[in-house]
Design a protein around this nucleic acid. Structure first.
Lengths: 154, 154
DNA sequence: TATTGTTATACTCTATAACTATA
DNA sequence: TATAGTTATAGAGTATAACAATA
């Protein structure tokens, strides 16, 4: 016999649990998907110990050498205070270097080290593997549509 | 004169900064969008001080009275340890109550209080307003497509 | 005065582990 | 033994504020 709800008895976990209003909220689905996708990314790049944010920072520095910390922070929507710690970690691992700017001595120009360049190539191959997981999960067309719909947020 | 990158000089922030490989990653766009959508949700419900996770917990309890904490945690993908604190906060605000289950005295049956029911109605109206912001931002069709593409993750 | 990088604090969230009381 | 709820801790991420050096 199924328990009736509403009388102080706990419903067994096997019952189907409706989401009610959450079904109509894009934010709920997006959040659940974002968690899934980050977990897959972290798992796929676990061997090289690189997380999504670290990957995004290295990719942008690699494609735009000489950027300041402020420029990277603004472009990626990361707090500048947070970026300090991220860069400390990447610098300790000899993947990124800060170079004192001569034109504006308050700021640092960011570059990948030689090792950072080589590592980033490897990270990109693994990230591409992750992206294939996404494609398998969503379907090729749906993934393409998704990227199109969200293109403004990049 | 534009600074050339790669010589230790910082690039001015005004330069266009390419995202390189990030452009092809669904996770990057999804993450940026998820941040935007949560910020809008938090802003839209700021007057009632309800955040997305709190809203999702109250909605599920409201639609499925008597659920155990484990059942809610599993359904929404929240850690049970995290849910304890969320419920403490909602219980302090007299929105939710825990009732000792008689059939299994380890567990609690979760219910909205009368005040919780009334408040949830208000939260849902505000959340619907937030959802209209999403629709304005994405376009009606794109929002519908997005929900369809991500339906498996709810 | 304003900006860049830094340090520090507080709060949210994720991920664990261990404890208690029950089953 | 296993499970539900709880407590605690550590790390990531967000949001601030304040400070030193420099503009």
């Amino acid at each position: 016999m199924r328990k009736r709800p509403g009388n102080g008895a706990a419903r067994p976990a096997g019952d189907e649990i409706g989401l009610d209003a959450l079904i109509g909220h894009a934010g709920y689905a997006v959040r659940r998907f974002q968690i899934w996708i980050f977990q897959d990314f972290i798992r796929t790049l676990a061997a090289v110990d690189i997380r999504p944010t670290q990957y995004s920072v290295m990719t942008v520095i690699g494609a735009n050498p000489g950027l300041t910390q402020m420029a990277v922070a603004k472009r990626l929507g990361i707090e500048r205070a947070r970026l300090v710690h991220l860069l400390n970690s990447l610098e300790r691992r000899k993947l990124v270097k800060r170079i004192k700017s001569k034109s504006d001595r308050r700021s640092h120009a960011l570059h990948l080290t030689a090792q950072g360049e080589a590592s980033l190539d490897q990270f990109k191959r693994l990230a591409a593997e992750h992206e294939r997981h996404v494609e398998e999960k969503l379907g090729k067309q749906n993934r393409a549509r998704l990227l199109q719909i969200l293109a403004d947020f990049t």
